[in-house]
Design a protein around this nucleic acid. Sequence first.
DNA 1: GTCTATACTTCGATAGAC
DNA 2: GTCTATCGAAGTATAGAC
Lengths: 194, 194
Amino acid sequence: MASMRRIGSEDSKTRSALLDAAQALMLEEGYAAVTSRRVAARADLKPQLVHYYFRTMDDLFLALFRRGAERNLQRQERALASPRPLRALWAFSTEQAGTALTMEFTALANHRKAIREEIASYAERFRRHQAEALPPILENYGIDTDALPPLALLVLMTSVSQVLILEDALGVTAGHDETIAVVERFLSRYEGDA
Amino acid sequence: MASMRRIGSEDSKTRSALLDAAQALMLEEGYAAVTSRRVAARADLKPQLVHYYFRTMDDLFLALFRRGAERNLQRQERALASPRPLRALWAFSTEQAGTALTMEFTALANHRKAIREEIASYAERFRRHQAEALPPILENYGIDTDALPPLALLVLMTSVSQVLILEDALGVTAGHDETIAVVERFLSRYEGDA
DNA sequence: GTCTATACTTCGATAGAC
DNA sequence: GTCTATCGAAGTATAGAC
């Protein structure tokens, strides 16, 4: 027995504006700032519209996450297929906005079950995707995949980029230059200078 | 002119109970669940006591953060002074509870300025501390600190441990075993098997 | 198909009695 | 050191008018 409540269409311009507002708020002030009232105010709309288009706040978060996830998967595919895939992956994962949003969703997932499941399934899909494309690339570079398995390299790269971005946002930068230099040296060894 | 409002003493048992309750809530449901009413309910006390002891919620968060930070600094000092400092650091940074709390505070910092400043200054202190203790250790092991500067090693280790813990909490584990194996091999090389 | 009016809950914080 | 009483602001969500 589904609810009789009506819901706004997916291609509504108002709906997109609400998602844009929610994303901006999340980046600037964290997920807790994403409330129906504040999202609406940011988009110059009435708070009730949020519930018309998304019913609950969880639905809004899910819609926002999916919109970004789709784009990320496509961009990653392009990165892996590019002439210098390791550099492309590194550039992609050190982008401020995307990673900051991901971190915010991860924090949110800690206490919203519906969101946690969605993020987990996306993350597995994301990594499996990488895991399939990377082995031939590393072998082609002559990297010893026993000493450094493709998945380990991925976890290392994404870990470092995420923490660097996170700390940057806080204003903590000690050790960053040294770490980036180590990564750069590794990348240059196989794919030439930046 | 400071307010005339009274404030509870720092060594009060009630005050500690409130901090314990706040910490538990933060770990279980995220910082957004840490409200004066819920903290009090969890500690079986009246909500107004929160304001008596901490005045504002920001003050409560700061007190909670400082309590943990002090303990962390002391534990890190012991780890660095132990016979196998790298292993001790790794064990320390892969502990679930501490890292989860840190993540939650980092997310919180996004929209509470007072907290962001406190966390940033603590993080810098924490890393400077490590930066002073580590160089002689690495040189003693014969590690080439040009190829791998001490601070870079620290950023690498803490990045990996944080992301592993974070993903574990989400239920994402692809690549974790491979990554841990790489770290273990590195640690074993200089400080023997676990 | 789109928005308004409105109900109800929870929040942080204070004043003042005990 | 703790409790009663209470404010105003902000939160989610639904019913129904246009």
